[in-house]
Nucleic acid binder design. Structure first.
Lengths: 193, 193
DNA sequence: CGATTCTTTGAAAACAGTCAATCTGTGTGG
DNA sequence: CCACACAGATTGACTGTTTTCAAAGAATCG
């Protein structure tokens, strides 16, 4: 009854070198949690308290505007981290929602536990900073595409880069992620080639 | 003959607590550089070797597409860091250009020096990670706005958030940053409200 | 199945982009 | 110091893309 620890262990092993003792410390610190489809991991207005590692499933971060429209900020699946870093950092209520698109399983590390882990395991701290660095680079790339590509280019790039998301997320959410309307995405997809 | 060291010292003092010795180490590691308007700090195809702290002036990161159009990825001014983190991390040629919009002054910290500094000064390492964290949060916010706002909303938000950029950067670059055409920006600005 | 949600399609309206011409301000060389 | 050249900004008319609204058609789930 693993609760996703092997997924996490594989991930960590691929990204850094840790002793068996350190693995134990990490696994003891992690709180496994299961989420059913549509279940919130974080709801707007709540303070985000956890760094969250996904061992199974698919989640999204989204914001809701005054008109009630949802805007998907990001998707995340197995072997990705998800949280609202702003809320986590400032301890202010989050502007975002995070919920499960599929039944999912995650490992939760609360803020102070994470601090303790990064303080006591330098290799883990390095890995975590490396993840952040890559996240930032990915964000820059997304910004670049958002300001320079047409709707069609954005969609094609998205499908190539994230085939998993393209297959597993509803088209309305993909449209939202790309900043276009679902009708527009439907038309793009159904025009020949 | 300060070369911007007091600006840097002020900045570091505002963000962390460091001994006089550590300040000395940082300042000894920094290479001051002056840039004239239009001068490159980094040119597409070159490998980015430096973390760069701006003590004076205004710079931009931009990409050039197949059609020759420039796309401004970001602006940065006094007390901001700028670099191409992807190129810095991977040591592969950069896809971006960084150049000076005004005559500027920067402090350069090369990759290995930066590594040495963060390894030997934990408080500095924390500050640097904090900067990265905030950069990531800022990127997320920008993505959110890019996918959810109209051109007019993007412009208004930009002016409020970055009055300095709005005043100091040419409108064609601001338009590029927002992902709209200069003509469209001009029309937005000149329609009454 | 039956109900709900997601996707597709159509037609019209709104919006942003294109191309070309004019206007403005800046800086440079004569 | 003036005049010209140049880049940046504005304006107009037109085109093309995306949104909106509405309705019909799949697909999914209890």
């Amino acid at each position: 009854m693993s609760a996703g620890f092997e997924v996490f262990r594989d991930y960590v092993t691929r990204h850094t070198q840790l002793s068996e003792v350190d693995f134990g410390t990490l696994e003891a610190a992690a709180k496994p949690k299961k989420l059913r489809k549509h279940q919130y991991l974080l709801q707007e207005g709540d303070v985000c308290r956890y760094h969250c590692f996904i061992t199974k499933g698919l989640l999204r971060t989204y914001a809701v505007d005054e008109k009630g429209n949802e805007h998907v900020i990001r998707f995340a699946m197995e072997n990705w981290w998800i949280s609202d870093r702003e809320s986590l950092l400032t301890e202010q209520p989050s502007k975002f929602n995070i919920d499960a698109i599929e039944d999912s399983e995650v490992l939760l590390f609360d803020k102070s536990t994470m601090q303790m882990l990064t303080d006591s395991i330098p290799a883990f701290a390095k890995m975590v900073t490396g993840v952040l660095d890559k996240s930032f680079i990915t964000s820059q790339t997304r910004i670049h595409e958002a300001i320079s590509s047409t709707a069609e280019e954005k969609y094609n790039t998205f499908v190539q880069r994230y085939p998993g998301f393209a297959l597993r997320a509803p088209q309305s959410m993909i449209a939202s992620y790309l900043g276009i309307k679902p009708e527009t995405l439907s038309r793009l997809r159904n025009k020949k080639h």
